[in-house]
Structure formats: structure tokens, C-alpha cells
């Protein structure tokens, strides 16, 4: 399996811990990369001003993107991901704690692959993460970043 790591963009430290714990219990061997806000996510995906760019994204199996993030919102990050040929193939799962209908619609319009509401009950949340990790990392197939046809 080539793509097996999970990128989690989540600002709340509690949620980071709980998400990592849930994902680890689902697939113990998958690396989990945690980023704290939208800007950090953009820097990771597209390279920062300092020039540390062209990180290899091949290993990424799925991005878990919180809708509400400091600095750059999750929906804005999603938009950027879908705009660039470097990243537009990435599976993105939007994650939110509120079930605001407007967010749901916006997320799919911007090209989200999935949208889930974090369950309050931790057992159910763990169940969600298990299903999610199993589907995106084991069942779903993604192309390699290098083989993505460049546009323009």
C-alpha cells in the first residue's frame, strides 16, 4: 500500500489528541500528520515563503480538514487544494463539530470528497474514524502525485 498516511488539520489540542487516539485504534500503522491551522496546511501542501517546497505528497492517503480553522478557514484551504494541479487529486474529508447546512453545501460545491460531523459520544466518534481510515486508506485508491497530469 503506497498511500497510507493521514493529514489531520485540527486547531483544538483536545480534538487532536482524541482524533489521533481514534485513528490509531483504527489502523495502528498509518502515520498521522497533525497541522494546527489553515496557513500551516497551505505551507505544508504548497511550500512556505522560506522555500521549503515540493514536499512529496505521494504518501498522503486522505486529508481530514476541520471546517473552522484559525487564520485560513478549512473551506478556503479546500478551495486552494482544488485549484492547484499539485493537490487537486487529494481526497479531502471535511470534519466539523456543527451540522450547519450551509457549510455542508459549500464544502461539496468546493469539491470535498466527504463531510462528517464529529459525534459527541466518543465511542461513535471512534467508530466514525475507524470506518473513515478503513475506507480511504484500504479500500480507496489514489493516484501518485507525480503521475497527476499537469494542467496548463
Amino acid at each position: 500500500m503506497d498511500a497510507h498516511s493521514i493529514l489531520v488539520v485540527e486547531d483544538n489540542p483536545d480534538d487532536q489528541v482524541l482524533t489521533i487516539r481514534a485513528l490509531k485504534s483504527a489502523s495502528e500503522n498509518s502515520p498521522v500528520i497533525v497541522l494546527e491551522d489553515g496557513q500551516e496546511a497551505l505551507n505544508y501542501l504548497f511550500g512556505d515563503e522560506a522555500g521549503h517546497s515540493c514536499r512529496n505528497l505521494d504518501s498522503l492517503g486522505v486529508v481530514l480538514l476541520d471546517v473552522k480553522l484559525p487564520k485560513v478557514s478549512g473551506l478556503e484551504v479546500l478551495k486552494q487544494i482544488r485549484c492547484s494541479p499539485r493537490t487537486n487529486w487529494l481526497p479531502v474529508v471535511m470534519v466539523t463539530s456543527s451540522d450547519e447546512p450551509a457549510d455542508l453545501l459549500d464544502a461539496y460545491r468546493l469539491g470535498a470528497n466527504s463531510f462528517i460531523t464529529k459525534q459527541i459520544n466518543y465511542r461513535e466518534f471512534t467508530e466514525q474514524m475507524t470506518v473513515l481510515a478503513r475506507y480511504w486508506l484500504q479500500i480507496n485508491k489514489v493516484p501518485k502525485a507525480g503521475s497527476a497530469p499537469s494542467i496548463g
Binding site: D14, D15, L18, S97, S98, Q119, I120, N121, Y122
Partner: peptide
Amino acid sequence: RQPLRAIE
């Protein structure tokens, strides 16, 4: 909801 989720 977030703190509640953390508590739970």
C-alpha cells in the same frame, strides 16, 4: 460542542 466532546 467542542469542550463537551473533549469531556466525553
